[in-house]
Design a protein around this nucleic acid. Sequence first.
DNA 1: CGAAGCCTTGATTGTGTTCAAACGGGGTGG
DNA 2: CCACCCCGTTTGAACACAATCAAGGCTTCG
Lengths: 230, 230
Amino acid sequence: MKTKIHAADYYRRMLSMQPHALKRLDAFAKIMACNRGREIPNNPGPAGHWYYVITGAVRRCAVRSDGRRQIVDLMLPRDFFFVSDSQNEATIEAIADETVLASYPGQRVELVAERDVELARELRDVAFQSLTRSQAQLLIIGRLTALEKVGSFLLSLDGRASDASGQVVLPVSRYDIADYLAVSVETVCRALTDLRQRGVIRLAGKRTIKILNRSALEDRMSESSMVAGV
Amino acid sequence: MKTKIHAADYYRRMLSMQPHALKRLDAFAKIMACNRGREIPNNPGPAGHWYYVITGAVRRCAVRSDGRRQIVDLMLPRDFFFVSDSQNEATIEAIADETVLASYPGQRVELVAERDVELARELRDVAFQSLTRSQAQLLIIGRLTALEKVGSFLLSLDGRASDASGQVVLPVSRYDIADYLAVSVETVCRALTDLRQRGVIRLAGKRTIKILNRSALEDRMSESSMVAGV
DNA sequence: CGAAGCCTTGATTGTGTTCAAACGGGGTGG
DNA sequence: CCACCCCGTTTGAACACAATCAAGGCTTCG
């Protein structure tokens, strides 16, 4: 939290990374810096609210009265998402320190979209891509083994959250991974240990992972079909 | 398949049941009658394709190379859905005989939406409602027990697929229910048997179910908290 | 230094899968 | 007409995977 003004200006420059017509919204973007655990309000008025992730990570979490919970979406840098009060059973929360968002009031977005055909289409595309991702997640959660779930999670982060040296930096805790994949924390740990012992991945610190054998992750992993290197 | 012409005219009249601005699309609706198992093509061109379910049931199914599959969406009468080639790993298929759809080419839908602000907003709403449903399903599949899954499925059908006497008519086979809830067929059967023996539901035929104790379905069902009434 | 989170590993338990078998209805062909 | 088969459904028995319970290590922060 050094200099709030400077930080906002710095991140505002990163808005231009947005695709195509969506950058036309930047004129009225508001920059939000969030600490870990900071909740994003989900009663944003009738027209909802749009967000764009600049750095950090955000989760959308569905919670039941008995405490069981499920992360239904995980937003990383360069992701757009929409919040409306029709999903009021979900909570939205920053889960990494230094999370920075751009925020766009739904009312104004709709106004611009009425005049801008291309923007309207891209907003629709964002919605359908979110839907496609969510449906892919249904297959993962419903039909994969715990080991495969963790494997597919690592693969999905590769490219979305990997550093220059090709290492995946987990933006979230084991607990969040567990809640995202619908398994227990212990199972996530055991899966990572298993993959490490098989030589499929290497752990450089608890949150940094190097994928050594990509095809082993992509194929079905139930078999002991791979040779443990080292 | 009696008189194809008459049937099309009959169903065309049901289009006016659509909500609000969406009915403005009816001018170029094409009526499709599908047998069970009939596949809806999912390579509909760049602008995708919109459908509206008039009668019957349609599933969107994600399949893996090893045969595991997951129904990621279940469309019933009065549901809108959108097909684009970005979801080409999914197959879309009628799963009830006498399934009738209205079909709208995406290209023309977009053209109308460019001029009609209200329609554009409703199309976006359809997308977001689909997303919300899909995310609710993630919680169900990931965190509920088999018994709770079947219970929530029956509740979701109550109102969407119930007849005049308040009985739920299952539009799909046990296999489809299993694929939708990410459990095995046997588990679906056992859950239904369990609910029947507890007096929560009554089966009038294999596909017709009367909910006797609604609150027992809504509450958590792990407990034996209910009295079995005959 | 203690407390609180997060991560890891082991032992035990339990829920749901898998395998197996049998029933019923609807269609087809002998 | 009956035999037959296919499909959907149901139930039982054995097994397996992941959850739960328990405990210990590690880091960070007050």
